[in-house]
């Protein structure tokens, strides 16, 4: 697919000796929302982490925006326009909401625009706006997740990888979050999502890949997968 902004080919990765990603290949086209699904331990998080260069032992090829990035240092992906929201949110303790947002642009050439970007982001995340001077880790789980997403959006990435954004978030905030993803998609941000909340995820997804034991076992459009109860019950039940 020539339109792919992210091309993963024969990706392999190891945690110590365990071979957690076993030859995964897939594409994400510019502007698409693609979801990786599968049970716990299927290798979804490891796939994201190896794309981000955070697993030490990795092999294969990851081309982002025309550049091979698999072997490059982890921090360089940010500068290529690839953002990541890890599953445990990683709000830095001891820093305020504002400081956590500042971190989102701290390595960017556009860091002079930090204050303007925080104002802009605060429009999108009204919950954060009122809490800018509060310590980030004092927010509720859902608000912390919003903060983590907002922080990743500060640098206006081309593509964002999100690991289980709805986990541990109360339903009303999950609604808000998926509305936000839909809006991000309309604004042209490419999203690669790992999500256990299958129906929710498929509601905004173009295509999905189903992983099992470190391999892709199935792929299809959201409509195809939604219609297929067997696949859902076989691979996606938590």
């Amino acid at each position: 697919m020539s339109n792919a902004i992210l091309s993963v080919r024969d990706l392999n990765a190891w945690y110590d000796r365990s071979h957690v990603v076993q030859g995964i290949s897939f594409d994400v086209n510019a502007g698409e929302v693609v979801t990786l699904m599968g049970r716990n331990g299927a290798g979804k998080t490891s796939t994201l982490r190896s794309i981000m260069g955070m697993l030490d032992k990795r092999a294969g090829s990851v081309v982002f925006n025309g550049q091979e990035i698999l072997a490059t240092p982890a921090f360089s992906r940010f500068h290529a326009g690839l953002a990541f929201v890890p599953e445990d949110r990683r709000i830095v303790p001891g820093l305020t909401v504002r400081e956590n947002l500042q971190l989102g642009l701290i390595a960017s050439r556009a860091r002079d625009t930090t204050d303007a970007m925080i104002d802009e982001i605060a429009q999108t995340f009204p919950r954060l706006k009122e809490r800018l001077s509060q310590e980030g880790t004092s927010l509720s789980g859902g608000e912390q997740q919003m903060l983590a997403i907002a922080r990743a959006m500060m640098a206006k990435p081309r593509m964002i990888l999100m690991d289980e954004p709805s986990e541990g978030v109360m339903p009303v905030l999950v609604d808000e979050m998926f509305e936000l993803f839909a809006r991000m998609k309309r604004n042209g941000v490419t999203i690669l999502l790992v999500e256990q909340n299958v129906e929710r995820a498929l509601s905004i997804t173009d295509r999905a890949y189903i992983l099992d034991q470190g391999r892709i076992v199935h792929q299809g459009t959201a409509a195809e997968l939604l219609a297929d109860d067997e696949i859902q019950s076989k691979y996606c039940a938590v």
């Binding site: 360089s76 990541f84 890890p86 990683r90 989102g104 922080r151």
Partner: peptide, 8 residues
């Protein structure tokens, strides 16, 4: 790790 993800 998060600082690295954010490009530092």
């Amino acid at each position: 790790e998060i600082v690295r993800i954010l490009g530092v």
